[in-house]
Computed example of a mutant assay.
Amino acid sequence: MPVDADTLTRERIPTVIVDGLHIVYRVHGAGSGKGSATSALSRIVSKRRSPSVREVHAVRGVTFTAYKGEAIGLIGSNGSGKSTLLRAIAGLLPAERGAVFTDGQPSLLGVNAALMNDLTGERNVILGGLAMGMSQDEIKSRYQEIVDFSGINEKGDFISLPMRTYSSGMAARLRFSIAAAKSHDVLMIDEALATGDAKFQRRSEERIRELRKEAGTVFLVSHNNKSIRDTCDRVIWLEKGELLMDGPTDEVIKAYEKENKR
């Protein structure tokens, strides 16, 4: 049976599949007393685990599928596993169990656009663009747009100064501006919209909507429920590393706010 063009347009294309994912951090405590280094070497040779190793089960059996064109908010209390989940999707953390499958290259804001404190903002724009796979011509053509979007030159020529002279907010805005200058298969933003004034937040939200139209998938971690409502059409709620709810934005946020009023 032939498939019409409208059906193909409506077809949802998976971009990220998280299948029964478990992430475990292992925190190694310091040895005590004389011979602790010798004891450590003995444990390595004998393959015994250090008694001072503490395991933190940060993500517990999370499963979901993200689709092309979606903007997905991640909510939950501090320590619920939101940032850990993003780092796992970006390929920065190994799975203890389960798996993550992605179609295209995931980009985690603040990693792909890592900035170097001793270099000027101008040099960081160039290096950040190159790190994301942009050509020098692309960076040159978008350079002024990136600077203007960040707003860091609104109170002086900060783009020519070393990054160490920037406030944390200025650095975060420049990171977002660099990352948002390129279309991404999967773009993950961790608390980016919490930085900057209302004007910059509006620009950020508008740019995320543009990225969605350019066929990417966006994940947004934020404690600002208004930003989530304004930006995302779907929300995943995590607590203690477990997925509690996954659904339409208003439905999930209402449940989350009701739970947190108790």
Rank of each mutant, 00 (worst) to 15 (best):
R60V: 11
G61S: 00
G61H: 05
G61K: 07
G61N: 11
V62M: 11
T63R: 11
T63Q: 09
F64A: 00
T65C: 07
A66E: 00
Y67K: 02
G69E: 03
G69I: 05
G69K: 04
A71H: 07
G73C: 05
L74N: 00
I75P: 00
I75D: 06
S80N: 08
S80V: 03
K82A: 09
T84H: 00
L86S: 00
L86E: 05
I89E: 03
I89V: 15
L93I: 04
L93Q: 02
P94M: 04
A95M: 02
E96P: 10
E96N: 13
E96V: 00
E96I: 01
G98W: 08
G98I: 09
F101W: 15
F101M: 12
D103G: 09
G104E: 08
Q105L: 13
S107A: 15
L108A: 05
L108Q: 11
G110D: 06
G110N: 04
N112A: 12
A113F: 08
A113S: 15
M116N: 15
M116G: 14
N117M: 14
N117F: 13
N117V: 13
G121K: 02
G121A: 10
R123G: 10
N124P: 05
I126L: 15
L127C: 10
L127F: 14
G129E: 10
A131W: 06
A131L: 15
G133I: 01
G133Q: 05
M134Q: 11
S135E: 00
S135W: 02
S135F: 04
E138P: 03
I139M: 01
K140E: 15
K140C: 11
S141H: 06
S141N: 12
R142E: 05
Y143P: 10
E145S: 12
I146Q: 00
S150H: 01
S150V: 04
E154K: 13
K155W: 12
S160Q: 12
S160A: 12
R164V: 14
T165P: 08
Y166N: 02
